[in-house]
Design a protein around this nucleic acid. Structure first.
Lengths: 137, 137
DNA sequence: GTATTTGCAAATGATTTGCAGTGCT
DNA sequence: AGCACTGCAAATCATTTGCAAATAC
């Protein structure tokens, strides 16, 4: 449980209960789609509007508080921005997990060859998670 | 210029002029969004329906003839499936380019640590391309 | 000849916008 | 007090579906 109020202020966003709610759900779940967020957050804010979610997710991405994770064959999920990391998705249970990967040397190498100046990357590995590998189905 | 007719047959899809048109555009452009495809292909097939594009893009992805590239901060683009490769996108001019990267050892390493069995990955590097670096704007 | 594909129009789903009322600082 | 945020409803944009006519094989 973090201090989401402070997090908002640090990013120059006004503090509202809805925003704290959004961040709490993201903090608890790690990655959430808009739909999922809407379902979950309505338990606490029954009359919250989906428009509020869209607007706030956009704002929070603009100020680099959130990041969008584009999931192969699925809807985008959002996460609170933290240290650079990559993702693994299980094609069976669709669980999305963070994974720490060092891409520095690869990125440096491509940068030198191509002349690009990179400042971001997104890597998603797709496969079957250990749990689903065991499953008989 | 390739033999798209053969490519369709190999994937057990019937050959139609529209499908050949779609593949020609993809072959020429490398990566295209649905919108772009619609605009371009209408030069040759004025009355083609956007529904036809959606249906065919789906079919072609199902049979592994096409692949979707999820672009950060942009619409998905589609490409003809070929050897494994990654992508670089310029945040300024939005050009999307292929790049050959060997992720084998990284993937192997994560697989061992996590227990996942991976069979696909998508890496997109974002930055500024050499041309846009020069530009004064 | 039969099954599939196409184009159209309508339906559905996702996201954005405008605005009146409310809440933050 | 003043500006930003919220919720609602309507508008817009994206994608899917159903169906009759046309086409592939």
């Amino acid at each position: 449980m973090k201090n989401y109020e402070l997090l908002l202020r640090e990013h120059n966003l006004k503090v509202t209960p809805q925003r704290i709610g959004i961040l709490s759900v993201l903090g608890d779940m790690g990655h959430v789609s808009i739909e999922e967020l809407f379902t979950i957050i309505r338990k606490d804010f029954y009359s919250i509007s989906i428009a509020t979610l869209y607007k706030n997710i956009s704002f929070m991405m603009e100020v680099n508080l959130l990041k969008e994770v584009k999931v192969p064959n699925g809807k985008s999920k959002y996460e609170i921005l933290k240290d650079e990391h990559s993702h693994m998705i299980c094609k069976k249970c669709e669980k999305l997990e963070d994974v720490k990967v060092c891409l520095d040397s690869i990125v440096k190498n491509i940068s030198e060859k191509s002349g690009y100046m990179f400042d971001d990357n997104s890597l998603v590995l797709s496969g079957i998670c250990p749990t689903c590998q065991k499953g008989t189905v």
